[in-house]
Write a protein that binds this DNA or RNA. Structure first.
Lengths: 242, 242
DNA sequence: TCAAAAGTGTTGACTTTACACCCATGA
DNA sequence: TCATGGGTGTAAAGTCAACACTTTTGA
């Protein structure tokens, strides 16, 4: 970007500041990658490799490349770390505090993504990635605890209005699984009969006329999300669908 | 930021990319400054000074300085342009498309802010700032139309749950003014009796035992927002209050 | 005395909550 | 035959939407 171009960028008369002043800021994307397993909501974390945070975990993030937009960067991180490329992603908030990164000024754009852990067992052993139950997380590196909490808050806001959490479940699931997932996310117990009524009113599911098996009790019916709601990728589209 | 520091920044093993590749990206804050006057929601715009967008208006924005965080930058823009420093501000979304700025790669963090136009008549004549009714806006420079629509969408989501729109009104206001403001933001007509019931349930207002004057009809009672909700500044705090 | 808006309640429709019993299956 | 969860309905409480008349003021 030339000095002249920089000038043009300004949409108003402001005092001039040198090129360097403006651009000596790092921009990253951090992904809160959420999965659901063993009746718990889990987040994918990596052991921090910074001395300041030794022993702590951090979210998965990376610098944005000059030729990729924000969504592309988040997808790349997900693809590199999980091997998945058809995930649900939603931008949540941008964090830009001066002291958030010990090595310098870094602004990060936070996304959360929802993936089906069980159908995509990752090869986690060869690196430092681990799934952590969100309820057990205390301190994280950087301001990642704040980022995590912000994303979980957003997820809770979305969950009853929009069919997003199906991205955490296998293609076919029982109503009990679905209810347990809601309970894990919202942190409350739900009444089974009322829950089923509420879900059936939303008209999100198709009864595929199959039954659970390998359960040590009466098998439940299996359902799948209606095709029209199966929107992977940026959540803005999902929102538009209502 | 040194090359060494840059290395440290990486929270995972990724291929190395030069300093320049990472940092040749501009970061701005764009403010959707909203006001309410003549029963219309209005947004403060400036005539674009870029040839590509000649004749079009754009939002108010500026580059972030290396030593200011995101909120500080938005406040600075507001202060510079409106003279106000006790405004409501909320971060909405970050836009980072590759082609969104004709002069190069610019990522922008969008905020909306709500101000009381009538009590703070700005000196708008000496520059190119103008208030535009949001319903009359068609094309804007850059992707600013998208940014505006995104912010208005967020405002509509917030408006019934959180006491934010009082920032658009004078200290004292009548229930009719408040209702008209809701109608302008939501784009619907509301039933007066139901509206008053709904508002009184929320318990946001204090009846200050004063009356309108200079109205050509029976004066209405004046109310003011309860002190505990008068939160200027970042909306995250307002949200926490429920 | 007119025009304009203030102020105020009720009914019916709908939604939400609380709650309990019998059934199907695997161990 | 037992343990586990599957599957289902109803009544009471609360919320939401529709709707009209009298009052107060200024012009």
């Amino acid at each position: 970007m030339t000095e002249k171009a920089l000038q043009q960028l300004k949409t108003a008369e402001i005092e001039k500041i040198s090129h360097l002043d403006y651009f000596n800021i790092g921009i990253t994307v951090d992904c809160v990658i959420l999965g659901y397993d063993e009746k718990e909501l889990k987040v994918l974390l990596i052991k921090s490799d910074m001395q300041e945070f030794s022993g702590l975990y951090s979210l998965l993030g990376d610098f944005i490349k000059p030729d990729e937009d924000l969504e592309t960067a988040s997808y790349r991180i997900l693809k590199e770390r999980t091997g998945l490329d058809d995930v649900y992603l939603e931008q949540v908030h941008t964090f830009g505090g001066l002291k958030r990164h010990p090595s310098g000024r870094v602004i990060t754009i936070a996304y959360y993504s929802l993936i089906d852990i069980r159908n995509h067992k990752l090869q986690l052993s060869h690196n430092e990635l681990h799934w952590h139950p969100v309820t057990e997380i205390k301190k994280l590196a950087f301001d990642h605890r704040l980022i995590l909490d912000t994303c979980l808050g957003r997820l809770r806001e979305q969950v009853m209005e929009h069919p997003v959490i199906f991205n955490l479940l296998p293609e076919k699931f029982s109503l009990r699984e679905l209810q347990e997932l809601y309970e894990a996310i919202l942190g409350v117990e739900l009444d089974r009969r009322n829950f089923r009524k509420k879900i059936s009113i939303k008209d999100w599911l198709v009864d595929i006329d199959e039954m659970e098996n390998n359960v040590p009790h009466r098998p439940g019916r299996l359902y799948t999300l209606k095709k029209q709601y199966k929107i992977k990728g940026s959540g803005t589209k999902a929102l538009a669908l209502h």
